[in-house]
Amino acid sequence: MMPDGDYMLGELPVYVRDGMARLKEGDSLAGSILQLKDAVKNVVDWNIVTPEKAIMMASYVPAKSAHILADCGSIKPDKAADFIVLNPDLTLVETYLDGESRYEVIK
C-alpha cells in the first residue's frame, strides 16, 4: 500500500491518508491505493474467479483492452519481461523488471 503523503495523479495533486487517495482541491476521492497483486488475491479469496482467471484479468485483458498486447500482457519472446512470481496463496515471491530479478521476499 502507498504510504501516507502527497502525490501527483496525472496532473492532479492528491494526498494519501488512512488508506484513501483524495484530491487536494475539493477533497474528492481520487482513486484506490490497492495494489494489483492484492486485488488479484481478493477476487480469488472471495471465490469470484480462479487464480488463473484473476491473473488473466490483471494482465492479458488490460493489455488487450489498451491495444498493447503485442508488447505486454503475457510472457512470450520479444515482450517486456516485467512480471511477478506468486506463491500458491497469491502472496509475492519475486519481482522481475526487464527480465532481471529486482526484488525477492526474504524468508
Rank of each mutant, 00 (worst) to 15 (best):
V16Y: 04
V16P: 01
D98P: 00
I75D: 07
V16A: 01
K76N: 12
A58D: 09
E100F: 11
D18A: 13
P88K: 10
L29Y: 14
V49F: 08
V105R: 14
M8I: 02
N42Q: 11
A63D: 04
L23N: 13
K37S: 11
T95K: 02
D78Q: 14
K64L: 09
M56V: 08
S59V: 03
T50Q: 03
A70I: 06
V16E: 06
L9S: 07
M20C: 01
A58I: 02
A54Q: 03
D6R: 12
K76S: 14
G19F: 08
G19A: 02
Y7W: 02
Q35P: 12
L23Y: 10
V93L: 11
S101H: 04
N87M: 04
E100I: 02
D78P: 01
M8N: 09
D6M: 01
D78H: 14
I55K: 06
S28Q: 15
D27S: 10
V40F: 03
Y7S: 06
P77H: 11
E94L: 02
A81M: 00
G73H: 08
E11L: 09
N47K: 15
V49Q: 02
A80F: 15
N42C: 07
I68N: 01
M56S: 13
R22K: 13
D78L: 13
G10L: 06
G26R: 12
D27Y: 07
T50E: 02
I33L: 08
A70W: 08
I33A: 08
D38F: 01
M1D: 14
E94R: 05
L97E: 09
S59D: 00
C72Q: 13
I84A: 07
P13A: 02
V44Q: 04
L69V: 08
E25T: 06
S101K: 15
D82F: 03
L90F: 02
G31Y: 10
W46I: 01
G73P: 04
G19P: 05
I55M: 15
K64C: 06
D82S: 07
A21H: 01
R17C: 04
S74M: 09
K53D: 13
D89I: 02
E104K: 15
D27L: 07
L9A: 05
K107H: 13
P51W: 09
G26N: 04
D38W: 00
E100H: 12
R17V: 06
Y103D: 00
H67L: 12
V40C: 02
L36Y: 00
L23G: 12
L92F: 10
V61Q: 12
S28W: 00
I55F: 10
V44M: 06
G10W: 01
T50M: 04
E94C: 00
D6A: 06
I75G: 10
E100Q: 14
I68M: 08
M2Y: 13
G26S: 05
D27I: 00
G73Y: 06
A58V: 01
V43E: 01
M56K: 09
G99Y: 08
L69N: 11
A39H: 05
K107V: 07
G99K: 01
K107F: 06
D45M: 12
P88W: 04
D71K: 14
M2A: 14
A81V: 04
K24T: 00
A63H: 01
G5W: 10
V105G: 01
H67M: 05
P13W: 03
D27F: 08
N42Y: 09
